[in-house]
């Protein structure tokens, strides 16, 4: 069974005259890195939100391992798929960076000692240790972005969707992120990368899906790049 299956998916925003997504048919495997690329306004973010049920498709079906996403709660989906928003401000809501990263773990009932261990690791890895006690919304844009990414990746979901994860990151932090993503992909956790940063995508993706004006105009598989999908 495919991990995510979209059949004949349409999406229409109430105040937009054209369709934001039209006739999307897509199957995504769990153990792979799928990139979604396309020009500004082509519907990448909308597609990501439809996949995870933040937006409900106005036509067609979205299935997560055979189950319709429309019948699951956001929390049920969120425990299986991590989601990083395009704008980090929308997903940061805790009083300190450390709390932010630990939030999901604490509330899913992890033991405090293990939470601390994971949080410490993430702070160190994404070079945020010095901001441990800082209010996340007072950070620089790139720092916020890293907090948002860390707070989702820390939960070790089987699948993650990252919407433009490289915005605001410098070349050095991009490399660190790419390394991390490659590592988790190699142990079987899959992801969808929404990005216009071709340089970043080129190095990582097994499959590149191209959107234009809400439609899929290109879909190229490049199996076996990372050596686990042969």
């Amino acid at each position: 069974m495919h991990f995510l299956t979209l059949t004949q998916v349409n999406f229409h925003y109430p105040k937009l005259s054209r369709m934001a997504l039209e006739n999307i048919n897509l199957e995504i495997e769990q153990k792979s890195i799928t990139a979604i690329i396309g020009p500004n306004g082509s519907g990448k973010t909308t597609l990501g939100k439809v996949m995870i049920g933040i937006l409900q498709a106005t036509g067609g079906k979205v299935l997560l391992q055979g189950e319709p996403v429309s019948e699951m709660s956001l929390a049920q989906i969120g425990r299986r798929i991590g989601y990083v928003f395009q704008n980090p401000d929308l997903q940061l809501f805790c009083a300190t960076v450390a709390e932010e990263i630990g939030f999901g773990l604490v509330n899913q009932g992890w033991e405090p000692a293990r939470v601390k261990e994971k949080v410490d690791f993430c702070l160190e890895f994404f070079q945020l240790a010095e901001y441990r006690h800082v209010f996340p919304l007072l950070l620089s844009q790139g720092e916020k972005q890293r907090v948002a990414i860390a707070s989702v990746l820390v939960a070790e979901n089987e699948f993650v969707i990252l919407d433009e994860p490289t915005i605001g990151l410098d070349a050095y932090r991009k490399k660190i992120l790419a390394g991390y993503l490659r590592k988790i992909a190699s142990i079987g956790r899959g992801m969808v990368l929404i990005s216009h940063d071709m340089g970043f995508v080129e190095h990582l993706a097994d499959r590149v899906i191209q959107l234009e004006k809400g439609r899929i105009v290109g879909d190229s598989e490049r199996k076996g790049r990372n050596g686990y999908d042969t």
Binding site: L74, A75, G78, L92, F103, N107
Partner: peptide
């Protein structure tokens, strides 16, 4: 609304 969405997406079933 954003915060509630974000919290739920981190796996917390508010209900």
């Amino acid at each position: 609304v954003n915060v509630v969405t974000a919290i739920q997406l981190r796996g917390v079933e508010l209900k």
